[in-house]
Design a protein around this nucleic acid. Structure first.
Lengths: 124, 124
DNA sequence: TGCGATACATAGTAGTTCTAGGTATAGCTG
DNA sequence: CAGCTATACCTAGAACTACTATGTATCGCA
């Protein structure tokens, strides 16, 4: 399944912030993790991720620091900031609102009487 | 709550197709319906909707026909095509995949042991 | 020593989108 | 009937964004 550009764009920031909320990571690892977590549906390239990380840093949502161990490749580790956690909460709320709206439309014809409350979609 | 541009863009097509899947409608009514259904979170302008409807028509997802009753304003009614229904199903599947991925990330730290299967998110 | 994987970066094009403006009419109010 | 608001539709072009293509460098392995 190919995911449309718009959906990829809309989910990119919350995905990265969500991953970093669990612990610091670096570009290449995030890339692999997203491609893995999505079951291969989201096919991110590094050209998508690095500019996004730079933007998040510019906005103050993440911080970076280089790690250059003697016997290994240099990596730029990113960690989420308090401001980034606030942004993540905000994004989750927005996603919840939009998903709720979509479900309202999609379920209107299909199952009008089913009372639906999905788990895991509460506001952060 | 202000919804980001990207999320608005990503949800616009599935919303319109979803609304038209329940019956034909016209631009102005769709506009009101979306603003209403989203609880005011999605604030669409006509400048967003009309070009979108034109694009959907160009792609063959919807068909339009003018209605100009003697004692009323002219309206351009849109109805979904078979191809449009297929597209809607595809979009639902994509949304399900992305939402699933996001939930995987977001729940990882919060509730690792909860087995989650949301209702209403099956592929069309 | 050559290749694939790891790791990061960005210039510039190619594309999209949203603002701002335009047309027109119905219906209400004074 | 003049003026206003709501209804109803449309689009040019500026303003913005994102993705492709390309570049650098090192490690591990055969």
């Amino acid at each position: 399944m190919h995911i449309t550009k718009d959906l990829v764009a809309a989910s990119a920031t919350p995905l990265v912030l969500g991953i970093l909320a669990e612990g610091q990571s670096y570009g290449y690892a995030i890339l692999k993790q997203v491609n893995d977590l999505s079951g291969g549906h989201l096919e991110w390239t590094d050209g998508l991720l690095y500019p996004l990380l730079h933007r998040l840093e510019r906005l103050g949502h993440v911080q970076s620091s280089w790690d250059s161990p003697p016997g290994g490749r240099r990596r730029k580790y990113y960690q989420i900031t308090d401001q980034g956690r606030a942004e993540l909460a905000e994004q989750r709320a927005q996603w919840a609102a939009v998903v709720e709206t979509l479900r309202g439309v999609w379920n209107a014809g299909a199952a009008p009487l089913r009372p639906i409350t999905a788990p895991g979609w509460g506001m952060a």
